[in-house]
């Protein structure tokens, strides 16, 4: 895949939306089969990851270590199921391998490991650390005059880690404009709603006061997301943060906005219900055949 033109056409958006739905279904099947793993975050980030892997990123699935690839750093490693499904769909590995998630000997570890699965970039799970590594990569890339970009996905709960703010100070001071941070602002964490646990608002102001260019979007609007990545690319004197407001569990009504679904998979009955909802786009399609 090569760099895409600035403007994204409506038919491409429709194609990506369809793809995101397909990816959500594989995600539910994979999580149910694994019997362990995170549901809410991966479903909530399905649209953005689909847009990244099938439009935004400059990457070569058959050459995962291609030196000029854009680096996608997943800082909140626990949402790796969505990355795995997108990677399988993009051709990094066979889709049937998705069913090995979290099993002994699998390349699809519960939290992703760099050396097990080519294309994963970093080992992540302990929160905040992807952001620091993304900063290191962006800094090194600039030293080398490399033109590839770094995208770093973080959770909003994750921003409570001190290392995030240490890293943000560094990124802002060094003006690492080749780095785009994507905050999954889904408002939930394990113990409850983010605003109840510690509170992060006004989040936009916090980033702006550090010296970031901030773009707020609806994280389920692929066009908005693609436009935001282009805007971030155009802002060449400052690093950018895309605050993506997402609905955790998006697409499955009984998971949406429920922090209880942060860290558990659907059981077989729940998975059947979830898949039916996704196939019928929440009941808007009357007959379902699958």
């Amino acid at each position: 895949m090569t760099s895409q033109p600035l403007h994204i056409h409506d038919d491409k958006i429709a194609h990506l939306e369809e793809k995101a739905n397909e990816i959500r279904r594989d995600l539910v099947k994979m999580l149910e089969h694994a019997g362990s793993g995170h549901s809410a975050g991966p479903l909530g980030m399905a649209d953005i990851f689909t847009a990244l892997y099938f439009h935004v990123l400059n990457h070569r699935p058959k050459q995962p270590n291609w030196k000029d690839r854009d680096r996608l750093i997943l800082s909140n490693g626990h949402i790796c199921p969505i990355r795995y499904v997108c990677m399988a769909h993009a051709g990094y590995f066979p889709k049937k391998e998705l069913m090995t998630l979290r099993r002994l000997g699998t390349r699809l570890q519960g939290h992703p490991e760099k050396d097990r699965l080519p294309g994963v970039e970093t080992t992540s799970g302990p929160l905040g650390e992807g952001l620091a590594q993304a900063a290191g990569m962006a800094y090194a890339a600039r030293m080398n005059d490399d033109t590839w970009r770094v995208f770093c996905v973080t959770g909003d709960g994750e921003l409570q880690e001190g290392i995030c703010w240490e890293s943000l100070l560094f990124i802002a001071k060094e003006k690492l404009a080749n780095l785009t941070i994507i905050v999954d602002r889904n408002q939930i964490q394990i113990d409850g709603f983010v605003e109840d646990v510690t509170g992060e608002e006004p989040l936009r102001d916090k980033f702006e006061s550090f010296g970031f260019h901030v773009i707020e979007i609806d994280g389920h609007n692929i066009e908005q997301f693609v436009d935001a990545t282009e805007e971030a690319r155009a802002v060449y004197k400052k690093p950018s943060v895309i605050i993506a407001n997402t609905i955790p569990g998006k697409g499955v009504d009984f998971m949406e906005k429920k922090f209880e679904w942060h860290g558990k998979p659907p059981n077989p009955k729940e998975a059947r219900s979830a898949l039916a909802q996704l196939r019928t786009l929440g009941g808007t399609i009357q007959s379902e055949h699958e």
Partner: peptide, 21 residues
């Protein structure tokens, strides 16, 4: 120059190492 931030330093260094430094 990292400033007083040892945790970020370890992560930033790892990121730089993953980029060949």
């Amino acid at each position: 120059q990292m400033g007083i931030s040892e945790q970020a330093m370890a992560g930033i260094a790892a990121g730089m190492a993953l980029t060949g430094k």
